[in-house]
Design a protein around this nucleic acid. Structure first.
Lengths: 253, 253
DNA sequence: ACCGGAATCAATCAACTTCAGTCATATTCA
DNA sequence: TGAATATGACTGAAGTTGATTGATTCCGGT
């Protein structure tokens, strides 16, 4: 590996974890201890990191402080996100709907080799930096606040698409089916369902029993549903009886 | 292989991967080490890449360019941005190309009532929150690092578009016409030109005399050009003789 | 407080890679 | 054809790497 590239990687690792030991770095980079040692010395010299005995620590304010990150990682949504990301095989093409839960899925996709298609601006921002992910953006009228591309252009593009899997979110789920908040969004999501072989829905348990404004689709359109452990027995039966493969995430994530 | 073609390919590889080693390039291009070395030296010279030991790295606009405001506002690009924004009448629809100068234009569009069409992720981020701006996103393969949607999907969408004005950037401008860094980008920009009644080009004076690799279009395709005051008399004549309306921004902004 | 073992460190060196410069040959353009 | 430019091979110089050494620091037990 080349000098600059390696130092970049070291910097990223340290930024990500706050602290990394020298041995860890040696393992991950495949370089010798001497080399890593020299790199750390250099990075410390230019003030990018702070050298400590046995490793190196991050200096300067992080964009997302570590405590905040820890808090976030504990949420149900994040657990769902991680679990779903692990279910997706390398090299696959997935269609990612907008929404906070799907955004969590996207967070855990970083580092995987994938092709991701999305109409969500936040997800695009997150994955655009990732060199292992090929990102296809769906265009359209950018809906304020949620930052999702909708409208005729988005619908038309989605209509011509064909992917093995779509991962969708839902505003509300009842025995009648899935609901979401506005009709433009629902229209796009219908195209997504048509475009995909398998429809995966991610939702935290609070969504169940809630019927948001606009009807999206029946439960039978869904292939698989990934939910946190807060879902009661009654709902589990409803979902499974509709022929949906139900995956409940363990409470301890 | 032709010189320009090879350099274009090098540039594309570096833009896509962020970093490419010299040996990799030798392998992929089938040219000798000396030649690749010289190409890298040249590209480094014109500021398109950053040469590092053993390879070359991407330089240029990052996806999240957060420079200090007071530093930024003094730059020529910011002056051009403000001037162009003022030239655009309320209520219009404009097509905005990617690039650092067009991003500056976008910054000064906030608060105006407009419809903006763009394929640039940074610009979309900037304008997505603005309630007075209706934002249409052009989809496509999201080109890493620059965050611009390109490729067949973007080309197709742009091909079906019709707007009164496009505001474009250029990597280089000579008496022969406009140039930009890579062929995917140029292909999209050609569609933009076709889609628009008027073609406005924003460029700081350092771009003149530089022919950056891929030919985009002749000067006569341009309706109007907005440049900072650093442009010398000779170039002004060249531009005006080509039938382009030239607007030079005052030195004091 | 003191000791001994383990981990970490800085310094050094030889092997290796990359570099800038030179030169002869090949290609392009007028 | 001749001049200008581009290319590929070569070379000594400079930079990088991994292994080794002995010194230093840390830590648990007495």
């Amino acid at each position: 590996m080349i000098l600059d590239q390696r130092r970049d990687e070291i910097l990223q690792l340290i930024e990500q974890h706050g602290f990394v030991s020298l041995q860890e770095l040696v393992g991950k980079l495949g370089a010798s201890e001497s080399t890593v040692r020299r790199d750390l010395e250099y990075l410390d010299g230019i003030g990018q990191i702070r050298r400590t005995r046995g490793g190196a620590a991050y200096t300067g304010e992080s964009l997302t402080p570590f405590e905040e990150r820890r808090d976030r990682e504990a949420t149900e949504k994040a657990k769902i996100g991680r679990a779903v990301a692990e279910l997706i095989p390398q090299g696959e093409t997935i269609l990612l709907d907008g929404g906070t839960t799907t955004l969590e899925v996207a967070r855990y996709l970083v580092g995987k080799r994938l092709q991701v298609v999305t109409n969500s601006l936040p997800i695009a921002n997150l994955l655009a930096q990732q060199s292992d992910i090929e990102l296809i953006l769906i265009g359209g009228y950018l809906y304020p606040r949620t930052g999702v591309a909708l409208g005729p252009l988005a619908e038309k593009t989605l209509g011509e698409l064909n992917v093995p899997r779509v991962i969708m979110s839902a505003g509300g789920i009842t025995e009648k089916g899935l609901f979401n908040s506005n009709s433009l969004l629902v229209e796009c999501e219908r195209r997504m369902i048509k475009a995909a072989e398998e429809v995966w829905v991610v939702a935290d348990s609070s969504k169940f029993g809630r019927s948001a404004l606009t009807f999206l689709c029946e439960l039978s359109s869904v292939t698989r549903m990934i939910v946190d452990s807060g879902l009661n027995e009654q709902w589990r039966r409803v979902i499974e009886n509709a022929g949906v493969e139900l995956t409940v995430i363990d409470a301890d994530g």
